[in-house]
Amino acid sequence: MAVTIKDVAKQAGVSPATVSRVIADNPRISSKTKQKVREVMEELGYFPNFQARNLVAKKSQTLGIVMENSATLAFQNPFFPEVLRGISTRAHGSQYGLYLSTGATQEEIHREVVEMAQGKRVDGIILLYSKIGDPVMEYLGQCGLPYSVVGRPYKDPETISYVDNDNINNAKETVEYLISLGHQHIAFVGGATDFVVSLDRMEGYRQALDQHGIPFVEAYAVNQELMQGKEREAIRQLMALDVPPTAIVTHDDMVAYEVIGYLEDLQIRVPEDISIIGFNNHAISKHLKPPLSTVDISIYELGLHAAELVLEKITDESVPPKQVVVSSRLIERGSCRRL
């Protein structure tokens, strides 16, 4: 005979309503009671019928996850599995599942988000990027569905729940680290300029140069739009300048890997001939030869907080928007040298 919620309540010495609230991870139930009820559930082999409960509560018990690219491309970047690990940890604690976007273009992703919201497939959405003029973020701001963002929104950030690093200051400190090693000719190889993180890191780069009296050289600033799929040639031209850079700050570790490969083709050695530093501290970075200096941006924590923000809004719609800044740290390895 199947174990019922009443059996769990009797064994735990609580009411069936309390068991239901524990299953829903209601914040009004104490941690002690939750632990006791969950132990009894496990002991009796009780598994809640979430489908039936969700139909009654009109909830999907699911969070939508929206990536900047199709799932296939996104998972090539180690950032996304790690941020999803943080989201999954928090979602699992509240017994939520995840629904990943699979669109391959901006139009497909936007349509998918509309279907998620209007079809009530999810109770909330986590947007894993922040982009200028993004129709997905504009729609989320209008449709009333709880959502959070990984990254600082470009418009009205105080009205949106988001989690981010201090990307301006992080980039500034990275450039200052290279200056402390004696570098004056520092290039920046950035990402697409319609992403807020790219703009913030470029701003930090320029601020550091300005505060140390180092002129900004236009030819040292290379972004995705300028490269237009010709990354190898862009790096060749950068290193062929009359005064080539002695150090390069890259948008993230993935870009650093590519740049190092192009430099090797040009027989330019890291760090003997040029220093290089990235962002994100992917697991493979410490295993490169030489190991890559990088900024650890606490990717797992970004995901964890993003999930907390949207779950809090799902539980109580009156909660005001919150902005969380996650700490970062510079990791010095072998890809940078003192001049």
Rank of each mutant, 00 (worst) to 15 (best):
residue 2 A to R: 14
residue 2 A to Q: 12
residue 4 T to G: 08
residue 4 T to V: 08
residue 7 D to H: 11
residue 10 K to F: 06
residue 12 A to H: 01
residue 14 V to S: 01
residue 16 P to K: 13
residue 20 S to K: 08
residue 20 S to T: 12
residue 24 A to R: 12
residue 25 D to A: 15
residue 27 P to A: 07
residue 27 P to T: 09
residue 30 S to T: 03
residue 31 S to H: 10
residue 31 S to L: 11
residue 34 K to A: 14
residue 34 K to T: 06
residue 34 K to Y: 07
residue 35 Q to P: 05
residue 35 Q to G: 15
residue 40 V to M: 04
residue 45 G to P: 01
residue 45 G to I: 02
residue 48 P to R: 00
residue 59 K to H: 13
residue 59 K to M: 12
residue 59 K to T: 14
residue 63 L to P: 03
residue 63 L to C: 01
residue 64 G to Y: 06
residue 66 V to E: 04
residue 66 V to T: 02
residue 66 V to R: 04
residue 68 E to P: 05
residue 72 T to H: 13
residue 74 A to C: 14
residue 79 F to M: 02
residue 80 F to W: 02
residue 83 V to L: 05
residue 83 V to Y: 01
residue 85 R to I: 13
residue 92 H to W: 10
residue 95 Q to R: 12
residue 96 Y to L: 07
residue 98 L to T: 05
residue 99 Y to R: 11
residue 103 G to I: 02
residue 104 A to H: 03
residue 105 T to R: 06
residue 112 E to M: 01
residue 115 E to Q: 12
residue 120 K to P: 05
residue 126 I to G: 00
residue 127 L to I: 14
residue 130 S to L: 08
residue 132 I to S: 11
residue 136 V to Q: 09
residue 141 G to P: 08
residue 144 G to P: 03
residue 149 V to L: 00
residue 154 Y to M: 07
residue 154 Y to F: 12
residue 157 P to S: 13
residue 160 I to A: 10
residue 160 I to G: 07
residue 163 V to A: 02
residue 165 N to R: 11
residue 169 N to D: 15
residue 171 A to S: 15
residue 173 E to K: 04
residue 175 V to Q: 02
residue 177 Y to I: 08
residue 180 S to E: 15
residue 181 L to E: 12
residue 183 H to C: 06
residue 183 H to M: 04
residue 184 Q to T: 14
residue 188 F to S: 05
residue 191 G to T: 04
residue 192 A to C: 09
residue 196 V to T: 13
residue 199 L to T: 06
residue 201 R to G: 00
residue 203 E to W: 03
residue 206 R to K: 13
residue 211 Q to P: 11
residue 211 Q to V: 11
residue 213 G to C: 11
residue 213 G to N: 09
residue 219 A to N: 15
residue 228 Q to M: 11
residue 233 E to C: 06
residue 237 Q to V: 06
residue 238 L to A: 13
residue 238 L to V: 10
residue 239 M to F: 02
residue 240 A to Y: 03
residue 244 P to L: 04
residue 248 I to M: 01
residue 248 I to R: 01
residue 252 D to W: 07
residue 255 V to K: 03
residue 256 A to P: 05
residue 260 I to E: 00
residue 261 G to H: 03
residue 261 G to C: 09
residue 265 D to N: 08
residue 266 L to W: 03
residue 271 P to N: 07
residue 275 S to Q: 01
residue 278 G to T: 03
residue 282 H to E: 14
residue 283 A to I: 14
residue 287 H to A: 10
residue 289 K to V: 15
residue 293 S to D: 04
residue 294 T to H: 05
residue 295 V to A: 04
residue 296 D to C: 07
residue 300 Y to M: 11
residue 300 Y to T: 07
residue 300 Y to D: 12
residue 315 T to Y: 01
residue 323 Q to I: 06
residue 323 Q to N: 15
residue 324 V to Q: 05
residue 327 S to E: 13
residue 332 E to H: 13
residue 333 R to N: 07
residue 335 S to C: 04
residue 339 L to W: 10
